[in-house]
Design a protein around this nucleic acid. Structure first.
Lengths: 210, 210, 210, 210
DNA sequence: GATGAATGAGTATTCATTCAT
DNA sequence: CATGAATGAATACTCATTCAT
């Protein structure tokens, strides 16, 4: 009965925003950005079209909000100490985390791939223009670069213990492309390889690259 | 004064068709299927919208024609003996061919990924409905299955010579995901890894899996 | 400031729907279905093209809505007791009603004839596919069949009182074709015969067939 | 080998024209004027689109040519002595001729109805604008008027022998509408009434109105 | 905050007609 | 005479976005 406090209003706002974003993520992920209409989202979120525009200035901004939110979630689940060097155990843990990340956030990653593919993810994702996508408090491209550096470092240090024709850059390229391939499989064709091979595969990968 | 001969007409048709397909491939590949309008294609091909429909019954059919043409080209460059077993040398050759294929037909593969992503490649590409896509004289899905079988065979036979904890299935999964990852890189981010690492990487890959 | 109530929205919807249907009926009736463009209808109704599609999913559905509305109106004005037998007085009343119906709903009937002619009325109107057209609570074809049965019954019973060479089927055929002819005249060429002959003609027809 | 004479050329021209008109009549009649494309006609006539325009200046002109030809054919099959009075025998013959005409030229009449219905046959057919349609050597409207006059005359003269409440105009209206109704049935729903009733019906009609 | 009616620019597709050869 | 490639205006339909209430 008592008028709501500004905080309560803010709480309601955040809840509605989250609701819209969840519905939108589901539809974007399943049918793609273009094929999903504002009407669909509004209807499934149980609100009006107009209200949608009260929370998000455009369909594009809604998309950006979803991506940023998911990236942040992923980031907090990750939270690497970016300055340190990876030990062998940390490297192993890191790989397992990556695998889990793709398996557990399949819907989001499918959205990322689908949406980005339509506008050139690899061209734009890491570019300056894409700095609207933030991972926690840093632009996505810096985050990616940090992760990359972490791994590169690891392979360089590992190289010091290997024989002469071991090339850390080559090793790093092969490793990251392998991860990329697994990501694609987990995201779009999880049924392609039987589940019981998940652990075996991770173990084998770790054995091959650690 | 005298009318053109059927051969002349056929020549004109083939030329125009090729022109339209080339322009369309470029646009589809760069901006995706949906984002590319018939208007754009016509304008860049220097023809009228109507003429497009003189050669292709719909935008979808234009896409199919492009895909089939490229698949045929790729197939002729490939042409594996599908019944035989791969020797180690053949396996090496096979890998090199795959790498070349992705690097040399980047535009086409970008189209494939972008287009398919919009409608679910992995769900549809190998399904019965997609059998309109032909690789040479066989449906795409049969071709893919044959390639897969060839590789699986190789790893199984290789497994007989390895130690006890070598699992051909696991090895196969890792190998094909690695290829997939390289494909993605070559197609969408060729600048990501320096060109001089191309050969090194291929060699390393062969060494790791042969 | 406060938003419109659902009732208000419903009111707006019904009004606009009726407006669009009236304008469309006029144009369909005058120029036929195909010759009438959505642009024309929208312009004459003073609305945008898009709004049309907010109320009717397609041009075809708009047509169906118009036809169903008119059929319902006609039905309520008719409402025969379908199970009873017609007496002579009822038969007379029936004929007068039919004549009135064609004269009073000329615009609608002109639409029906024109539209149906373009796709073959007589082939489709009474078919199962056309069961989307409802007269009150029954499919149009059932309604038509009922009316026919009512009349056929009448002529058969009448035949029992006539001389030997009276054939009810022949009589029925002649009668219904006469009605058909009058319908055509009233619908498309009402000026062809002077209005003062209307009553005379109806009386004469009744005299001839009752 | 000898060059063709102008007459031979003219003969070829007339033959081709007739061929085109026959094919067009069939398609117009079955699918309507708008639904029939020049492409269809040309293809089915075994000629090129361009040639079509060598013989007919437009699709509309092709239609007009077909209608005029058919009207002329009907006219010659009819050829009434327009100045004379109909005797009872001639009236009977006239009715039979009309019935036969509709049954035998169903395809043409279906075209007439379908085409005319789309643009207002009854409004235009008899108007001055439609004078491009000729029956033999006279405009269609004059021909129609003549036929009408012939019949009206008949009923007036017949009226002199009937009782007081016989009204020739009323009788004439009923009669011509009955004919109209039969026409419609024969043209669009010939299967509606069994064939064996054809003669019976004609006889009954003659009996009723002669 | 909340609604959904209203807009209009945009999209694929069709087809009579023209014209160089 | 004959061909069919080429045109372009027209058509039904979609959807993000605005705005009066």
């Amino acid at each position: 009965m008592s008028p709501r406090t500004p905080d309560q209003f803010e709480g309601i706002r955040e809840e509605k925003k989250a609701l819209i974003m969840n519905v939108a993520l589901e539809h974007f992920s399943d049918h793609g950005f273009h094929a999903t209409t504002i009407n669909h989202i509004a209807k499934h979120a149980g609100i009006s079209k107009g209200l949608m525009y009260n929370y998000f200035r455009s369909k594009e901004e809604l998309l950006a909000a979803i991506i940023n939110r998911s990236l942040s979630q992923i980031y907090t689940g990750f939270n690497p100490d970016r300055d340190s060097h990876l030990t062998e155990q940390e490297f192993e843990l890191f790989i397992r985390k990556v695998f889990d990340m793709f398996r557990e956030n399949r819907q989001f990653w499918r959205l990322i791939y689908r949406v980005m593919m339509q506008r050139g993810v690899y061209e734009n994702l890491l570019s300056d223009q894409s700095s609207s996508y933030m991972v926690g408090d840093m632009p996505l491209k810096d985050f990616s670069a940090d992760m990359m550096r972490l791994m590169t470092d690891y392979f360089i240090r590992k190289g010091e213990k290997e024989d002469a024709d071991y090339d850390p850059i080559t090793e790093m390229i092969m490793f990251s492309n392998t991860l990329k391939g697994f990501a694609l499989t987990y995201i779009f064709a999880p049924e392609q390889y039987p589940d019981e091979y998940f652990n075996k595969t991770v173990d084998a990968l770790i054995k091959k690259y650690r």
